[in-house]
């Protein structure tokens, strides 16, 4: 039993080590100008929160939640911005940048000549995308607490949710990137991303949509992500949060498997 298990465990640490070496490469690229871009990325969800949540919120007042309670519009929008920023942070790194590294810089052709395998590259890149996303999420939750849009306890609970959302979208983005043929295809990614951003129950409750649209919206990943974060930060969540978590875990695993396979096929020609 132990004899059979040991090589597998050694294998796992080797996978982890090799994936980490891919993440390390990204850390080594950090330069002053990139740091500023990295930090400024945090501003985006905050600005949306202030503009739409507070600015437009002043025109709206309070909104009803599914459990019947009402919250100020800003408290309604804030968790959606948290989920959306976890999504866009992860996608930025795993679509555009990932594609550039694979097709443009031919970075992985070099890595492939080493013991590192395609799946480990995918894992390492995802780890890097997450390092960035995790920082954004933590900072944003801090702002939400400071603006009294949620309580510190709920913010703590929402943090792992935001990390999961980032991982799920990161894996999804990476899998999608392996199907991209040119930069033009990324117009489509941006379009899909913005459409999700607008219609995933982010700015108005999904109940406001016509029935057909509503069903469509409810199966998209960002809707599940918003449902999860909003349920936690407003304290209005119920058993459906479990469904959200399972859904996002499924997306994560599926994305990673597809990305690893596709990369293997693209790179091991």
């Amino acid at each position: 039993m132990v004899g059979a298990l040991l090589p597998r465990l050694v294998g796992l640490t080797a996978v982890a080590r090799r994936s980490a070496s891919v993440t390390e490469r990204n850390i080594a690229t950090l330069r002053s100008s990139y740091w500023v871009v990295l930090i400024s990325g945090f501003l985006e969800p905050l600005l949306y929160l202030l503009s739409i949540g507070v600015g437009v919120g002043a025109l709206i007042g309070e909104l009803p939640l599914p459990d019947g309670s009402t919250v100020p519009y800003a408290a309604f929008v804030a968790p959606a911005m948290l989920a959306a920023s976890a999504m866009s942070g992860a996608l930025a790194e795993t679509t555009f940048n990932f594609f550039a590294k694979m097709k443009f810089m031919k970075l992985y052709d070099g890595v492939l000549a080493t013991p590192v395998r395609p799946f480990e590259i995918a894992l390492g890149e995802l780890g890097w995308a997450m390092a960035r996303g995790v920082l954004y999420s933590a900072a944003f939750l801090g702002v939400m607490v400071a603006m009294e849009l949620t309580t510190p306890t709920r913010a703590l609970a929402a943090f792992p949710a935001a990390v999961l959302i980032g991982f799920a979208f990161g894996a999804l983005g990476m899998a999608a990137s392996t199907y991209m043929r040119s930069w033009q295809d990324f117009d489509l990614v941006g379009f899909v991303q913005f459409t999700l951003f607008l219609f995933s129950g982010t700015f108005v409750p999904a109940e406001a949509y016509p029935a057909v649209l509503r069903w469509l919206v409810e199966v998209t990943p960002l809707y599940r992500a918003v449902d999860l974060t909003r349920g936690i930060t407003t304290g209005s969540g119920d058993w459906s949060l479990l469904l959200d978590v399972l859904y996002l875990l499924g997306v994560l695993v599926l994305g990673l498997v597809v990305a690893g396979r596709r990369m293997g096929r693209l790179l091991y020609r």
Partner: peptide
């Protein structure tokens, strides 16, 4: 050790970092 036909060095890293990060791929 592989030296491919077209250089695929890492344009985002320095000359030295190209070697050190690559070494890390070998553990």
């Amino acid at each position: 050790g592989v030296c491919p036909q077209l250089d695929n060095l890492d344009p985002e890293l320095t000359v030295r970092e190209n070697l050190t990060t690559y070494a890390r791929y070998f553990g």
